[in-house]
Write a protein that binds this DNA or RNA. Sequence first.
DNA 1: CCTATTCGATACCGATCGGTTATAAATGTC
DNA 2: GACATTTATAACCGATCGGTATCGAATAGG
Lengths: 199, 199
Amino acid sequence: MSESNARQRGRPRSFDEETALDELTALFWQKGYTQTSVADLVEASGVPKPSLYRIFGSKEELFASILRRYMATRMDMISTLVAHAGPGVDGIHTFLSLMRDDVVSGTSQNGCLLVAASAELHGSTPGFDDFGSAYRGALRERIYTLVERAGGADNDIDQRADLMLTWFMGLDVTTRGAGDEAEIDRAIDAMHATVDTWR
Amino acid sequence: MSESNARQRGRPRSFDEETALDELTALFWQKGYTQTSVADLVEASGVPKPSLYRIFGSKEELFASILRRYMATRMDMISTLVAHAGPGVDGIHTFLSLMRDDVVSGTSQNGCLLVAASAELHGSTPGFDDFGSAYRGALRERIYTLVERAGGADNDIDQRADLMLTWFMGLDVTTRGAGDEAEIDRAIDAMHATVDTWR
DNA sequence: CCTATTCGATACCGATCGGTTATAAATGTC
DNA sequence: GACATTTATAACCGATCGGTATCGAATAGG
């Protein structure tokens, strides 16, 4: 509570922190963690280098902050999609259509940042593996509620959620990997067809 | 034909090229392309640095050679799995079981190198995106023949192959992302359940 | 034994890496 | 207007990056 508007004395910042975080996120998203240099970050965000380190500590801590922030907004977005999807098998179809919009022409044209980051940093930079499994866990919860509202036996619901979760990560890979629109549509249509058998 | 045994004059090499390639592949596979330095490669493979550059040209060309080599062996392996799987829906179940062995205790515990590489280098290092789409294309051919032998309408076969392809990439992500054995089993069991509906 | 040839060991290169250290420029407070 | 405080500018740091050049060691052909 006492934190907001607490910045009064001293020279004002030349950048907006949220805007800068958006641009930092976009750059990491495009090029990956390792391939993005601090000089790149400074140039793209307009945040001076000493300020970057004063605020975030290091490149690694900055990336961790960005991943946390991204995780929160992405989970909010997926929760919203699930909420808008409605109940029943039709709700899943609606959800898939909404996801298609985001993947084809929305913000997720480079796949999921968390998937890319955990895949890139696994085995070389410890402390980032947790992001990947946390993402899969949070994503599964939302997919589960979506699938649950379509009915079926408990065991079926679990397995359908697991299938859709794994499929979802595969769609991320396809999206990032320069997959053209037709390839993405084939992947999504295939899921549509499978969902149809859940009626 | 005239190429084999052509290396005669000059000081003999202190390393076996195929063995070295295996170790270079393993290192790139673990740490990713960017996070692996040439010094790491030299240390892990035993190939002196000048020899690395004399034979492969550059780090980037070396990685391209390794990806081509990996692609060939991986496709051979998957073709073998498909061949051993046999016809019918049961063949797909067998295929999934064989895949599980490779993912859990085989050579693919870090996921697919091509998936990781194209995801890492996309957007930063041009010329590697093709590997990803080529991999998905070649993989889809093999999955298609597997699914085709289980029967069904042409349209169904196409969509089932697309589903299984996307699922497959998702399994790669799960495998690489420090997914424990139980999580991998859930992903595979979910596919088993879906395949059961194809009878 | 001499030469051509191929490779290994070592040192080296400029560039870039992530990160820091002045010092000056703005602000609010009094 | 003096002062404390926060930020921006710019130069700078050692380390490491990918890549190369030099030179000696090891082989085959003659």
